[in-house]
Design a protein around this nucleic acid. Sequence first.
DNA 1: TTGTATGCGTTATCAG
DNA 2: CTGATAACGCATACAA
Lengths: 346, 346
Amino acid sequence: MASVTLSDVAREAGVSLATASRAINGSANRTVRPDLQQRVLAAAARLGYSPDANAQAMARGRTSTLGLIVHDIADPYFSSIAAGVTTATEAAGLMVTLASTGHRPEKELAFIDLLQSQRARAIVIAGGRQDAEEANERLRAALATYRSRGGTVAVIGQPILDVHTVAIDNVGGAAELARALHGRGYRQFAVLTGPAPHLTARERTEGFTTALAGLGVEVPADRVVASEFTRDGGYEAMTELISRQADHRRRDGLGSLAVFAVNDVMAMGAMAATRDAGMRVGEDVGIAGFDDIVTLRDVTPGLSTVAVPLVDAGVRATRMALDSDGDAVVEQLDTVVVLRDSTPGP
Amino acid sequence: MASVTLSDVAREAGVSLATASRAINGSANRTVRPDLQQRVLAAAARLGYSPDANAQAMARGRTSTLGLIVHDIADPYFSSIAAGVTTATEAAGLMVTLASTGHRPEKELAFIDLLQSQRARAIVIAGGRQDAEEANERLRAALATYRSRGGTVAVIGQPILDVHTVAIDNVGGAAELARALHGRGYRQFAVLTGPAPHLTARERTEGFTTALAGLGVEVPADRVVASEFTRDGGYEAMTELISRQADHRRRDGLGSLAVFAVNDVMAMGAMAATRDAGMRVGEDVGIAGFDDIVTLRDVTPGLSTVAVPLVDAGVRATRMALDSDGDAVVEQLDTVVVLRDSTPGP
DNA sequence: TTGTATGCGTTATCAG
DNA sequence: CTGATAACGCATACAA
């Protein structure tokens, strides 16, 4: 309630407000006589003084807050990124304000406004974009005014918002995965993809199928199943795929199929669906994902995937947002294919 | 840079600063003539006005920020709690400031200071306590002064900090698990526990062994293996246990053993260790955990565990911190045993 | 209902 | 090196 203010400390120490302020935070090139400094610090400690960050923010004209916007903090993909962001933010002496949109794109805008109000120094937005030009345009506009007010922004995802971006090589990663699976001998493929407007899903699907085409393998249209970009989406898509397989078996004979789910949580859903259908992952059907979320460590059989350094993405995005102030720069994140037992080969 | 202030809006709308303020936030019982209100709102929109939360906080004497302190935001246990906290916080119209200590207890104190400086309205601390009285006393003191300054606190964990607490029934849950495993026919047990001072680990271990004792079954001392409270800790502990088993087999004959890891991530590490040792989880040895983190959904065989409603814990802790202002109240969280295929019975 | 004036806690400017 | 004092942007008690 009755908080101790700097004036109290100054009085207690028998110095002026200005001196107390300088003694406690050591303002720029101003310096304070050591003994006075000690007196002030002692007084502050005695009174249990706690600087008011809001008042400081107002006086200084800047805060020490960084905003982080994610789709869902409980999703291992985002919580890994968040771990990187909190680490880098702490290292920079800032605090992070977390906003979890719950997959509601409109909340992104609302949170940007809130962070704007908070005068957050920087904003990191994690999560792939949609192919929805009006929404993207609104977002671009919001970020532009935020930047015009002195804030900096970095997003992890597609570089389409005219701000610093840590981009994931979805096309390249998926293509490499396709070639790796082909290298293991697979000749029949299916893709479990996301909703049509979902850019990440689309890029990964295209990267995968295009690379296969380059190898002379085509993915039949009915073997590309779209669903939600979630674990349950993966489950449903795989269930659907399995039911469609009945037809294929008649036409093509069996052969061993490799299924690419465009992210790991979908792949895990697909693994569950496979088991529930009485088939064995790896033996009856190969499954691969994308992201290499930490969770995979404890999935059996090990899930083949395209590893994305998520924690590092958080760290780098934070640094970009904090350090580079000029034009939008794009950093490409390296991905690497990791083959495990879920795709042993046919 | 040159941010639009409320004065600018007032001038643009041709009203006083006070009227502009009232028109925009609709202060308490004060009301503004509709047409003026519209003029102000229009002016604000035209100028792209964004209220300065720091200035508001100072003028109002309170912020709209809630602080969340967790051990590791990338840990599914904590990210589930965080999901609950962000949801409830958003519902209350507040923002959350996230602090991830990285398992360094001393950071907890530092973050409390920071949140104090920020004048956060409430703080939620998630994570079990240690049996380290000096540290707890420091924490208690820090929280006490925070509360004396008008803040409210809720912790998720042991109710030993004299603040609102969402407590997990570690003893009861572990006991129930013990009885359930005994009911499935297990007669030999082992426990993979955490570091000695870790209260959660200790409570779960004691609840488990005491309940077994009540059933006339004893857990030999060398079948209680202590390690870190992490996945890797579980892996190491299980490896150690397996090596010790060699002796037991000679003494007791084989029989089927049920291993209780005091949390799910340790249990998952234990499952991995079991496989790496060439044994099958469920068949050669039963394994159970505690918490029922979402990750378990995709672990095979399904891990038996004691389910704790983590998201709900986050929601309730947030509500407690926000609503109840008086003396420390303790809410017990219900747990429920979930038996899956990792403990089919001997 | 609207306007005026003051204070919130700090930093920073400008004299001493 | 230190001390008054003016911002900072907004809410509110008080006055009109």
